[in-house]
Amino acid sequence: MRNISDIIEAHLKKIIERNQQNQIEIKRSEIADQFSCVPSQINYVINTRFTKERGYLVQSKRGGGGYIRIQRVVNNDETALIDELIRVIEPKVTQAVALAVIERLYEDEIITEREAKLMHTVIKRETLAFQLPLRDEVRSRILSAMLETLKYEEA
């Protein structure tokens, strides 16, 4: 069974997909009321599920007329996207950020589900049985190498 964060994320993504500008403006309190949760739950979803690594820009305006704008970044140039992701993950990367990068590649149909699973297996902490910070550095190097390969496979 999916948890409330998954449900809220799916709801917001569905709204973004339907919007021709790939963005939405929401009021945190209204979404919290809609899902019968506290507004901090909405913050959690936005801060963890709508990140730069996953291909989203988030802006917020505080105050009475405040809003949160979530925009899906559409990248028409796969090479430029891969270069940007490499910049994000170097010189070291956590497992969570690495997984977000892999998920973005899958969602943008740059890699297949099978490739995503293989990449995930290679970068997870159980596979990279090193102490921190070495583990995050090795993960970055491995993921960067895979991304570079994708970049040249597409060319």
Score class of each variant (00 low, 15 high):
Ile111Tyr: 13
Glu137Asp: 04
Ile86Pro: 06
Arg62Ile: 02
Leu150Val: 02
Gln21Val: 11
Gln41Asn: 07
Leu150Gly: 02
Asp136Ser: 13
Met146Ala: 12
Leu132Trp: 06
Lys13Ser: 01
Asn47Pro: 07
Thr121Met: 12
Ala10Leu: 12
Pro133Ala: 13
Arg125Met: 09
Arg69Gly: 06
Ile42His: 10
Thr112Arg: 10
Ser144Phe: 00
Arg62Ser: 05
Ala10Arg: 14
Ile89Pro: 03
Val45Phe: 11
Ser140Pro: 02
Asp108Tyr: 12
Thr79Arg: 08
Lys61Tyr: 10
Val58Asn: 05
Ile111Asp: 04
Asn3Gly: 10
Ala98Ser: 15
Glu78Asn: 15
Lys61Gln: 15
Ile7Leu: 11
Gln20Ile: 14
Glu137Val: 08
Tyr56Val: 05
Lys92Pro: 02
Asn76Trp: 13
Leu12Ile: 07
Gly66Val: 11
Ile26Arg: 14
Arg62Glu: 04
Ala116Trp: 02
Ile4Asn: 08
Arg139Cys: 08
Lys92Asp: 09
Leu118Glu: 10
Thr121Gln: 13
Glu109Thr: 13
Gly65Tyr: 09
Val138Gln: 01
Ile26Cys: 06
Glu78Gly: 05
Ile8Ser: 06
Tyr44Leu: 10
Glu115Arg: 13
Thr79Trp: 08
His11Cys: 08
Arg54Ala: 12
Lys92Met: 08
Phe130His: 13
Glu126Cys: 05
Ile89Gly: 09
Asp136Cys: 04
Ser140Glu: 10
Lys52Gly: 12
Phe130Lys: 03
Ser5Leu: 14
Ile15Lys: 15
Val38Met: 13
Thr79Gln: 15
Pro39Gln: 07
Ala10Asp: 05
Arg139Met: 14
Arg2Asp: 03
Ala32Cys: 13
Ser29Asn: 14
Ala155Pro: 01
Leu105Tyr: 04
Glu84Ser: 15
Ala155Met: 15
Leu81Asn: 05
Asp83Ile: 12
Asn47Gln: 15
Tyr44Asp: 07
Ser29Thr: 06
Glu78Met: 11
Leu99Asn: 08
Glu30Tyr: 11
Val73Gln: 15
His120Ile: 02
Lys92Leu: 08
Glu25Ala: 06
Lys14Asn: 12
Met119His: 00
Ala96Asn: 06
Ala145Ile: 08
Glu153Gln: 15
Leu150His: 01
Phe35Leu: 01
Val38Phe: 11
Lys124Leu: 01
Glu154Met: 09
His11Lys: 11
Ala96Phe: 03
Ile31Tyr: 05
Arg62Phe: 00
Met1Asp: 05
Glu9Thr: 14
Ile7Phe: 03
Leu57Gly: 03
Arg28Gly: 05
Ile31Ala: 10
Ser144Cys: 08
Gln131Lys: 13
Tyr44Trp: 13
Leu132Ala: 08
Lys52Ala: 13
Arg104Pro: 00
Ile110Trp: 05
Ile102Asp: 00
Glu148Gly: 02
Asp108Thr: 02
His11Thr: 07
Thr127Ile: 02
Glu115Asn: 07
Ala98Asn: 09
Lys27Met: 06
Thr79Ile: 14
Asp77Lys: 13
Val74His: 01
Leu81Met: 15
Ile82Arg: 00
Glu25Thr: 04
Ala32Val: 10
Val45Gln: 07
Leu12Tyr: 01
Leu118Asp: 04
Thr94Arg: 11
Ala155Leu: 14
Ile142Cys: 02
Val101Met: 10
Val58Lys: 12
Pro91Asp: 07
Asn47Phe: 06
Ser40Asn: 07
Gly64Glu: 04
Val97Asp: 01
Lys13His: 05
Ala80Thr: 12
Met119Gln: 00
Gln23Gly: 04
Lys117Thr: 11
Leu128Gly: 09
Arg2His: 08
Asp108Leu: 06
